[in-house]
């Protein structure tokens, strides 16, 4: 980023971008869009919200995707990875170069990077690995070492295996069907990888069950973990209140926070994984929450506060 670029906390933009390329990579689609302002403001972990269906669309909710990469060419391009799961992503997959795309971004809180040159393990599930490569670049700029642990159901669904092998100090791949790397899931080998890499910090992005297990293991090894959650979002900018999940604040109080603006990156141990999809009885604003809090105060996340080398 140049010194005359926007402030790091400059807000998101709504841009009518021009599609540069749409490529198939294994099981996924990768779209590159010319969107200069978004590219300049991007920090790893942030995402874009894309309008789908064109003029007079019947699909009103934006589709949110992690930004995979930004490049300076054409004034600034933004790249994201998606999987065709419905009509909206089908429409996106059918786009051609030079067509216009309305996108807002960069949205959400980025991954915090350590102050010190520590050993970082980046864990990705499926195409949840897509934001991890830009993060890896950023971490290496800071003098950190980067190890990758990527997993998916099959080899064609491990996004970025080659890049991970080329750029990581180590890269471990797991597949459920054994078609690439070790047969199994990432958490089967996480302990071994942490041990071998002498991991200081974990970053993870992927399906919620994976994030939950990675968090549990990280806690067992007493390693801080930053997770980028995949909650279903509608507006991406914090007004619709769709994408909430229960997260414990630094004051020990659980709040239903928006993953689009308060996340998508959270400290793993702050997320109440077992209570996702519910309103915990002691959550801020739950019926009778104050009385419950007085009766059984939660310890909150204080025991993990202020870890060295892990400032936001």
């Amino acid at each position: 980023m140049t010194s005359d670029g926007p402030e790091p906390d400059a807000g998101p933009l709504q841009v009518r971008g021009t599609i540069l390329t749409v490529r198939r990579i294994d099981a996924y689609h990768v779209m590159t869009v010319v969107a200069p302002g978004i590219a300049a403001r991007f920090r790893p972990g942030q995402f874009v919200a894309v309008a789908v269906g064109g003029q007079d669309t019947s699909m009103l909710l934006r589709r949110c995707f992690s930004i995979h990469d930004v490049r300076p060419d054409h004034g600034g391009t933004v790249e994201f990875v998606f999987s065709v799961v419905g009509r909206g992503t089908q429409w996106l997959a059918e786009r051609r170069p030079r067509e216009a795309l309305d996108l807002t971004g960069p949205l959400g809180r980025p991954f915090p990077v350590p102050r010190d040159p520590v050993s970082c393990l980046l864990v990705g599930g499926g195409y949840g690995s897509s934001p991890l490569f830009a993060l890896a670049d950023r971490l290496r700029e800071r003098g950190c070492t980067v190890d990758f642990l990527l997993g998916a159901a099959s080899g064609d669904k491990v996004f970025g295996a080659l890049t991970a092998r080329r750029t990581g100090r180590s890269a471990t791949i797991t597949t459920v069907d054994g078609s690439l790397g070790v047969r199994g899931i990432v958490t089967d080998v996480l302990g071994q990888v942490i041990h071998d890499a002498r991991t200081d910090v974990i970053y993870a992005c992927g399906p919620m069950p994976m994030l939950r297990q990675v968090t549990a293991l990280a806690r067992r090894y007493d390693i801080p973990v930053q997770v980028a959650v995949e909650e279903s979002m509608a507006c991406g900018i914090g007004v619709c209140m769709t994408c909430v999940l229960p997260v414990v604040g630094s004051d020990g109080i659980t709040r239903m926070v928006r993953s689009c603006v308060d996340g998508p990156v959270f400290r793993g141990e702050r997320v109440r994984w077992d209570d996702i999809g519910t309103i915990p009885l002691d959550a801020f604003g739950a019926p009778g929450w104050e009385q419950r809090r007085l009766r059984q105060p939660r310890p909150g996340g204080e025991h993990t506060a202020g870890r060295p080398g892990h400032g936001a």
Binding site: C240, M241, I279
Partner: peptide
């Protein structure tokens, strides 16, 4: 706190 998810 509102309703549980999915909300939309």
């Amino acid at each position: 706190a509102g309703r549980p998810t999915p909300r939309m």
